[in-house]
Amino acid sequence: MNDKKLIDLIEKNKPAGFKNLVDKYQRLVINICYGFVHNRQDAEDIAQDVFIEVYRSIERFRRKSKLSTWLYRIAVNKSLNYIRDNKKNTWFQSLDILFNENTNAKVLEPEDSKNNMPDKITENKETSGYIYEAINALPENQQIAFTLKKYEDLSYKEIADVMKLSLSSVESLIFRAKKNLQKKLIEHYKNL
């Protein structure tokens, strides 16, 4: 079912239309979120939030942009908010430990991060998993552009639509993201 028919169906019969929308786009949305958080469970939780927002605001979808572009945008925003909230929580946990010695709170140490890595990394002996750290360390706009390119293989035009930027800005962001990743990876492997 194409997007136009899908939106028409949602207008006539919201529950049925919404189920079709979720069936069509769930993998795509989950993978976008996964590209940012690198954890399956977290990605599924964020994707659920994305679809809840879509359910609440589908009536406000103006049909000016593509439905997929709109979904990508919500998924990117939710993922970035999740990462920001997580950073805040970790910071507060650190404070908690600093001021309260008896607390049971535990900050994720660099050593722990290896234990929390997705199964795919532990299965794949060729990669160290440092690539995730390198991607997460990129400036936000570079991270978004690179992730949309690598995880969903979106065209530069689609990325420009999602990020509301010009085509040349997206090209520049991806070029700089690759340069920064290369630098970080080379430094990392040389210091091993």
């Binding site: 993998r27 599924e44 659920q48 795919k120 990394i121 794949n124 990669t127 690539i131």
Partner: peptide, 26 residues
């Protein structure tokens, strides 16, 4: 070789199987 392994890994690092209870939970 190392950087190529990392980049190749990203191309395959995707969730193919969706949790069957995803819609129910939603």
């Amino acid at each position: 070789e190392k950087i190529k392994a990392d980049i190749d890994f990203l191309h395959t690092d995707k969730i193919e199987q969706i949790n069957p209870g995803f819609y129910q939970k939603l």
